[in-house]
Amino acid sequence: MRKIQSVVVIMSFISLWQLLALSLSWGASVPADSSIYDPGKLKAIDSSTKLKAGDIAPDFSLPSLSGHPITLSQYLNKKNVVLSFVPAAWTPVCSQQWPGYNIAKDLFDKYDTQLIGISVDNIPTLHAWTKEMGDLWFPVASDFWPHGAVAKKYGILRSNGVSERALFVIDKKGVIRYVDVHDINSMPKLENLIKELKKL
């Protein structure tokens, strides 16, 4: 009788161990993109821009990754411009938004458009982050100091100091033709942007 009791204890020990092992392994996340910080679900939009289609795009000049400053007005009468604001480096969705644009250069070229990526991060951060994306064909501007000044000018600085995930399409005359202040948690569809470029 005592033996049976003991067998039961050992059996329960084994199931307990299995349960522990299972729960431990479920909790373990697979490492790989471990450098990507997951902020969880955020408030979709946390600012309100007054800019709309038909307005003159506010000019700005920002340091860029290449070392040359990027000035919006340098494209006046030369190229259409898409400003792609992303919230911050090393966050999940935007770590993928620009690589998507990176393989769509032909489409931007087709509509004579210069893409400019902007974030509120400083240059060294942007350097490390974009290196993970491969070689980008478009300039990346740092809106770090005075912090988020351009994002603020465009009315898309969120209360925690990062920018919205926003797209501004600006024609050769410097007029805004399309504004998409996107839900920060999701990616704007490429075709919606290209559709707007077609209209230029």
Binding site: Q96, Q97, P99, G100, N102, I103, E132, M133, G134, M187, L190
Partner: peptide
């Protein structure tokens, strides 16, 4: 895969 994923692209 995803069109936006640089690892998939590579």
């Amino acid at each position: 895969f995803s069109m936006y994923c640089p690892i998939c692209q590579r």
